[in-house]
């Protein structure tokens, strides 16, 4: 007989946090990553060695609301919840629509996608260019970190064992004149893990670029973003000159270092990544969304 599997499912976030403070646990939201990770033979319960804490039922972690210019999104909102919510920006909805199929979207959560920290996590490039901030809660209170600091490597995040991700804040979502887009290149539509993901963000005043950001997914251990390269384009006008575009492309050519794996080759990935960027930079105009 296997060892006993312990699990908690509290009614309140506070009780959940006290438990996490007492012992190191495996948090399960939708479980769409965790259950695959711990998959065992049919009929045999997945062997999750740490005590389990279920959090997907906690309403407090499923709220979507505006506070000033910021949009707060509860970590346990499922993809379907977000697709049905009028406050969620269209580019994020478009990214979510590329994720898996309806049954997975009815279960998988935004917080799970972030904490799972897969290089191919499809919401991540866009969250990077939105400068998303993460609200981590523990018994000692609240800690807010930038998503780019939180995600440290493949499946490695800066979460203390007594913390949960409670909310995702999109600070710049409402900035006027902003345009954002997510593009994904994969194999087939549903259930296709990205070979390359790209998010672009631009804010202009007339023709002048006030702010511009890019992030690439699935071409390195974490999302690839470079504020230094972005800065070089601020103040330029659209459409961008060919020389400016070439300069940005060659700068990214140096820092994008994809790998070969069963889904694709490094060369293909890099070519696609740079083409997506070129396409984004070559546009004559950007419809605000």
């Amino acid at each position: 007989m296997a060892e006993k599997i312990i699990a908690y499912r509290f009614d309140q976030v506070d009780q959940t946090l006290s438990q996490l403070n007492k012992e190191d646990c495996t948090i399960i939201a939708g479980g769409t990553d965790v259950m695959v990770l711990y998959k065992s033979r049919r009929g045999v319960p997945p062997k999750i060695t740490k005590p389990i804490v279920f959090i997907d039922h906690l309403n407090e972690l499923k709220q979507v609301y505006k506070k000033g210019k910021d949009l707060h999104i509860g970590a346990c909102c499922t993809y379907s919840d977000l697709l049905n919510d009028p406050l969620i920006p269209t580019p994020l909805k478009n990214a979510i629509k590329t994720i898996a199929a309806p049954a997975i979207r009815n279960r998988g959560t935004l917080g799970g996608n972030i904490c799972n920290a897969s290089p191919a996590g499809d919401t991540l490039p866009l969250l990077y260019v939105y400068n998303a901030k993460l609200v981590l809660r523990s018994v000692s209170g609240v800690r807010i970190v930038a998503i780019s600091d939180f995600i440290q490597g493949v499946r490695r995040v800066d979460r203390k064992s007594n913390e949960i991700l409670a909310e995702i804040i999109l600070p710049s979502e409402l900035e006027e004149g902003a345009y954002a887009v997510f593009e994904k290149v994969g194999n087939r539509n549903a259930d296709a893990i990205a070979k390359v993901g790209f998010a672009g963000y631009i804010r202009t005043n007339g023709e002048v670029i006030k702010d511009i950001r890019f992030a690439f997914g699935a071409v390195g251990p974490t999302m690839v973003r470079s504020v230094d390269i972005e800065k070089k384009l601020i103040g330029k006008t659209i459409p961008l000159a060919g020389a400016d575009i070439a300069q940005v492309l060659s700068a990214f050519d140096k820092i994008i270092k994809p790998i070969d794996d069963q889904r694709s080759t490094a060369r293909y990935r890099k070519t696609v990544a740079l083409n997506l960027l070129r396409y984004f930079l070559s546009r004559k105009q950007y419809q605000h969304n």
Binding site: A7, R9, I28, G30, G31, T32, M35, V36, K39, R42, P46, I52, F54, D56, H57, S80, A100, A101, P102, A103, I104, N106, R107, D191
Partner: peptide, 28 residues
């Protein structure tokens, strides 16, 4: 057994889900 094929599809509170990915402890 990994959420890819849909053979295990059921409804949870009227929503289509894959029963191979659902730990029983989460559906109280």
């Amino acid at each position: 057994g990994e959420g890819e094929c849909g053979a295990c599809s059921i409804f949870v509170n009227n929503l289509l889900q894959n029963s191979c990915l659902i730990p029983i402890g989460s559906i109280e």
